[in-house]
Design a protein around this nucleic acid. Structure first.
Lengths: 259, 259
DNA sequence: TCGGCGAGTTGATGCCGGTCAAGGCTTTTC
DNA sequence: GAAAAGCCTTGACCGGCATCAACTCGCCGA
């Protein structure tokens, strides 16, 4: 098998397509082991490969999707990172998710056939586009893919619940500790250093995501640095004392729980 | 078609099965219009019907599932209500969801094949059990069912995001206003009164769910009553001023948003 | 009938974290 | 090279809500 013929012609706008030839094959992708098609048979994998489209890369600040825009595709982050932002009338924008390479963007659009929030690139970002109707067709023929889709959505439900637990009843310190440990784990599982990494999001994004003022984020990070839990230099972060950070994140607070 | 033959024998415990004969047919169920099999063809519907099991009803306080227990089935609430509780080491239990008739419980168990939280009945509750592996098989043959499953999970993702927005950055008043309006809407869409209804959960459950102390819930409800927004008598709630409640819930607060 | 328990209410107190404000640093733009 | 715009930090202030505590009420079982 040499060239992959795709069924769709180029479009204009941020959704316009280019078709780099070789590196679009899943089996050659560095993320293969952490991505949706994991575990597919050779034949199924090439069917999967065949429905993928490759929009132009996004620059920092560019949108992958607009809130309320018609939902058509899921996207997988190939490199870079994104944030999801929910805009509510009369309220400050709320960051609800950060997406790293290998993660799937857009499941929340399926329900109403429109994108639930806007998704914005935090840096130069490449994605793979999976037109949902074609993915759904394929899910009929390939049980493994269907299972992976269910698992992936379910995993996101679990993560959201973790987030709800975090937002409801944890202190600013604990929220930030959990946030950094969560990022650390996500980097680790992608083969990046779990101890030193770059934050592609601003303090303001972190604050919005964690339900804190950006000033609080800044202050807590400064204090963590004093306490030798982490070292921070702008957006470069090193976790210095993983054990204490975990202890802090799991620490009970208040009368109902506790040591 | 007369009797439905089910593939599984009785088990013991809260999962034990009884098989009432007639009223188990989806098409006769009062919730049919709001339930998973909505829109299935006659044939598909009877296949769907055939995989449903009917565990014994739960009494108040009984568990439908235990946290970390192996995941096997989704459940649909037939009557009554439940709460999902996540227990974390050294921390107070966290209520993450309330489930009303017609809603599906258990999607978050698919990811790891274990139940993410415990699910507890808030009153006498009947459920339908859908063994997931059989549901998945059926989803292969019935695209409409597959679509409905995807949509249903996606809808839950949207709801969780709404919840995250609520927990992150809204005041106690706004959280409670949104909570009551949300319940109201859910009752309305099931044909119950959207203005007067019974709260099957305690103040403590509400507080946990909304990230507030139970005392705060009590105080805010009392104040809402003074302000003629609602009237409360124990767990009976009437919404008196829907318009103001909506205005309150959507009201911007803080420097980043408008007045 | 009594005691115990869980649920709910109400008051007093204090602190965490939001808000406002000022200033520094970096990057972008003309 | 200067101006402008983001982004981040740090300080001062104070208000919303958690916490602790005391009390009421209804329910259940002995």
């Amino acid at each position: 098998m040499t060239a992959i013929v795709r069924g769709k012609s180029d479009r204009s706008g941020p959704g316009s397509r280019s078709r780099p030839a070789r590196e679009t094959r899943c089996e050659r992708c560095a993320l293969y082991a952490r991505c949706l098609p994991l575990g597919l048979e050779v034949e199924a994998l090439s069917s999967f490969d065949a429905i993928i489209e490759h929009p132009h890369p996004l620059k920092r600040g560019q949108r992958l999707m607009h809130q309320s825009q018609t939902f058509e595709s899921l996207f997988v982050v190939r490199s870079g990172s994104l944030k999801q932002v929910v805009e509510q009338p009369g309220q400050r924008d709320q960051v609800t998710h950060f997406y790293l390479p290998g993660e799937v963007v857009g499941f929340d659009g399926i329900a109403e056939s429109r994108c639930y929030g806007s998704v914005v690139a935090l840096e130069s970002t490449f994605v793979c586009e999976l037109p949902f109707h074609r993915l759904d067709d394929l899910a009929e023929q390939v049980p493994e893919l269907r299972g992976e889709l269910f698992r992936c959505m379910s995993r996101e439900l679990c993560n959201d619940q973790r987030m709800m637990c975090l937002l409801s009843g944890r202190t600013a310190d604990q929220r930030l500790a959990s946030f950094m440990l969560g990022l650390s784990e996500r980097f680790r599982s992608r083969g990046c250093s779990p101890y030193c990494f770059h934050l592609s999001m601003s303090r303001s994004d972190i604050g919005s995501y964690l339900g804190l003022a950006l000033e609080t984020v800044s202050r807590v990070l400064a204090r963590f640095q004093e306490q030798r839990l982490v070292s921070v230099d702008g957006r470069e972060l090193c976790i210095e004392d993983h054990v204490s950070l975990v202890a802090l994140a799991e620490e009970g607070a208040g009368r109902h729980s506790g040591p």
